[in-house]
Design a binder for these strands. Structure first.
Length: 429
RNA sequence: GGAGAGGUGGCAGAGUGGCCGAAUGCGCCGGAUUGCUAAUCCGGUAAUCGUGAAAACGAUUCGGGGGUUCGAAUCCCCCCCUUUCCGCCA
């Protein structure tokens, strides 16, 4: 969420930003609610001040004066109750209005509403040329006996799967590879809860239990399955004041990710590209509340993502995401898209990572602050998140890019120590 | 799951209706002093909201919510969390 005072004082800029992002918004209501809130706080403060003063006089007052003072006290109590009740209502409405407003946007982010208006910042690697018709990951995994989609459907429904044989090993190898990389970069590694309180989901900008939610919730509890470890990693320092000297904090989480993918049917649903559950290693950062600090962290996150996929020898491109395609909390976002030879007619790019700088947008709702030397009070830290490895997508890219004419797949050298094999071949019958 | 104990400032820990935003200790910051890797002494040291250019002033906050009262950290009710013992268990 944005700072209320900031929104009121920079109304035109906020409205323009919303237009750039394709978010319809009218700030009139918000501004008048903010005014009303201020009035109510002022009169409430004044009434309470008088009440405090009065109740201090009562024990010392002559007996004859007491009934009058007590009567006045009762009157004040009623006025205060009334004022506070209205304030609660106003603040509730205000919160709803505020929640609609997306983060501001990095001045360098490309402006545009269509996905196609994102800019390709750079490309890496050479797309493989095959002297045979390349298979897609579904066919490859079937031939290599790496997945059981039917069993997944039987047990949990469409969008669930059993990884099997080299499939299961490949998932673990990817997790290990990412963890090794992140440790060398100074990240503290966590396995995190796969469920979180709705309050934490809201804090990180996810909306459980709505009509269009992407989130699975557990009935009769305030818990939901996490869509990413971003939620739990962001939530772990909720309401805390972080030591400025220890920033930036680099943490990484291994978790399962659960997504309903409501309305996601139709495009690219084949195989394990879009699934309801997958395993992911996620980076998360808390930086000093300065754009220079979070910008630098953002570049580092993208660099690590690129080095991971360079290690896996996957051709990819980096997209600087345009304003219309940024999520609400993101100030700027870079996606990595891997070349997937089995997608579409002759191969297509598919999203494999996403790295966002959320500036203080998440931190404000989560109340994660720091004390900046020489500055009064506390300030909200900046938070960032980025995918190290989303296993299913990474597996697709590996299988389709490294497939051989005989249907086997060469294992990227960096994974071999965990896979225990150089090449994935069909298991002996 | 059963029985008990407890949630107060960065930490520890007092406080059972007005003199309590809160003793004391530790930590931290500033200063004094001492020729010595330290001790001692003095002072300062919460967050949030509102008004204000600022200094400052006011309000709120003792796990959360509700109640009693002129007045609640303190009394009553509900909830949450932590912890100890027992049971069960990967």
């Amino acid at each position: 969420m944005l700072d209320l005072q900031f929104v009121c004082e920079n109304r035109a800029a906020v409205e323009e930003n919303c237009r750039n992002r394709g978010v319809p918004i009218d700030l009139t209501q918000l501004v008048s609610l903010a005014d009303r809130r201020r009035q109510l706080i002022a009169s409430g403060d004044q009434l309470r001040h008088e009440q405090k003063d009065l109740s201090g006089q009562i024990p010392k007052a002559p007996a004859a004066d007491k009934p009058g003072l007590i009567a006045r006290g009762k009157e004040l109590r009623e006025q205060i109750t009334q004022t506070e009740a209205e304030l609660v209502t106003v603040e509730e409405q205000l919160r709803l209005e505020q929640a609609q407003i997306p983060n501001m946007t990095h001045p360098a982010a490309p402006i545009g509403l269509e996905e196609s208006e994102s800019i390709t910042a750079r490309e890496w690697g050479t797309k493989p040329k095959f002297d045979f018709k390349p298979l897609d990951h579904v066919e490859l995994m079937a031939k290599l006996d790496m997945v059981d989609l039917e069993a997944g459907t039987k047990v949990a429904g469409h969008g669930f799967y059993f990884l099997k044989n080299a499939g299961a090993l490949l998932e673990l190898a990817l997790v290990n590879f990412a963890v090794e990389k992140l440790r060398s970069e100074g990240f503290t590694i966590f396995t995190t809860p796969d469920l979180a309180r709705d309050e934490v989901l809201h804090g990180t900008g996810y909306m459980p239990r709505g009509p269009e939610t992407q989130i699975y919730s557990v009935h009769n509890t305030d818990l939901s399955l996490v869509a990413t470890a971003e939620i739990t990693l962001g939530g772990m320092f909720k309401d805390e004041i972080l030591d400025y000297a220890k920033l930036p904090l680099k943490v990484a989480g291994i978790s399962h990710c659960f997504r309903t993918e409501a309305g996601g049917r139709g495009k690219a649903t084949r195989g394990i590209y879009r699934v309801h559950q997958f395993t992911k290693v996620e980076m998360f950062g808390f930086t000093a509340p300065e754009l220079a600090a979070s910008d630098e962290f953002h570049e580092m996150v993208v660099r690590i993502e690129e080095e991971i996929f360079q290690g896996l020898e996957i051709p990819y491109r980096v997209l600087d995401i345009c304003t219309g395609d940024l999520g609400g909390p993101a100030f700027r976002k870079y996606d990595l898209e891997a070349w997937m030879p089995g997608r579409g007619e002759a191969g297509e790019y598919g999203e494999i990572t996403s790295a966002s700088n959320c500036t203080d947008f998440q931190a404000r709702r989560l109340a994660i602050r720091t004390r900046v030397p020489e500055k009064k009070g506390t300030q909200f830290v900046h938070t960032l998140n980025g995918t190290a490895v989303a296993c299913t997508r990474a597996m697709i890219a590996i299988l389709e890019n490294h497939q051989q004419a005989d249907g086997s797949v060469i294992v990227p050298p960096v994974l071999r120590k965990w896979m225990g094999m150089d090449r994935i071949t069909p298991p002996a019958a």
